Simulated scan of single mutants.
Amino acid sequence: MKYDKLPLQYKFDQLEPYIDSETVCIHYTKHLQGYVDKLNKALEGYEQFTNGKTLEEILFNIEKTPIEIRKDIIRQGGRVANHNLYFSILDSKPKKYPTGQLLNEINRRFGDFSALKEELSNKSINQFGAGYGWLVIDKKGELDVISTSNQDSPLMFKMRPILTIDIWEHAYYLKYKNLRAQYVKNIWNVIDWNKVEEIYLKECSK
């Protein structure tokens, strides 16, 4: 089973001015494609293990993976899954506020939507080095805000991610240089809560 990047639902320049065209292009066609290629290369000869399994299923059960390829699955598979979620929740004409069941849970867990944004922004900005900020469904089925380092996916910790902010420098450095906080502030303008809600409801139905 070959794994791949998800197709973009927008053109490279359609996230302007918040994320520049050159960054989206390089990030998607070079960085993400490189992770996809390395993942599939690492999995050659292990088709019997991967057959019929999504990448997310493999990462969620990382302890069951063959030890000889586990590190590559974490490194490359984590990067592919993380980036696929990241690119999938962005949009040129996003719904900027959650509604319905997800909003109710946000209000119950964090107080209100503004408090969630503040907590997730701070978690992302203050993550040391490369990594991601996340809104996840934790092991108890509750919403939580976390960050992970490098390529690590919340799936490996039995958490279901529904939103991520990529804070590797390649996600923002061409436009924002060292101003990670400005990038995090602006990314909220292109996060599509329609897509986040779809993921949330799908995960809740499992």
Rank of each mutant, 00 (worst) to 15 (best):
D4Y: 08
P7M: 02
Y10T: 00
D13Q: 08
L15K: 05
E22M: 15
T23L: 08
T23Y: 07
C25H: 11
H27K: 11
T29I: 13
K30N: 15
G34C: 10
Y35K: 01
L39D: 01
N40Q: 04
E44K: 06
E47Y: 03
T50Y: 03
K53G: 13
T54R: 15
L55P: 13
I58Y: 08
L59E: 00
L59Q: 00
E63W: 11
K64M: 08
T65M: 11
T65F: 08
P66I: 01
I67E: 12
E68D: 12
I69W: 00
R75T: 13
Q76V: 02
G77I: 00
G78V: 02
H83T: 02
N84V: 06
N84D: 05
N84C: 07
N84L: 06
L85N: 01
F87A: 05
L90W: 07
K95R: 14
L103G: 01
N107P: 01
F110A: 07
G111K: 10
D112L: 09
D112F: 09
E118V: 15
K123H: 14
Q127A: 08
F128K: 09
A130Q: 13
A130N: 13
Y132V: 01
G133T: 06
W134V: 05
W134N: 01
D138I: 03
L143D: 10
D144V: 07
V145A: 06
I146T: 11
Q151S: 10
S153G: 03
M156D: 03
M156I: 14
K158T: 15
M159F: 09
M159N: 08
L163A: 07
D166N: 05
D166Q: 02
E169R: 14
Y172D: 04
Y172T: 03
K177L: 14
L179D: 15
Q182E: 15
N186Y: 12
W188H: 04
N189R: 14
W193Q: 06
K195A: 05
E197R: 01
E198C: 06
I199K: 06
Y200E: 02
L201Q: 11
E203K: 04
S205E: 10
K206D: 15
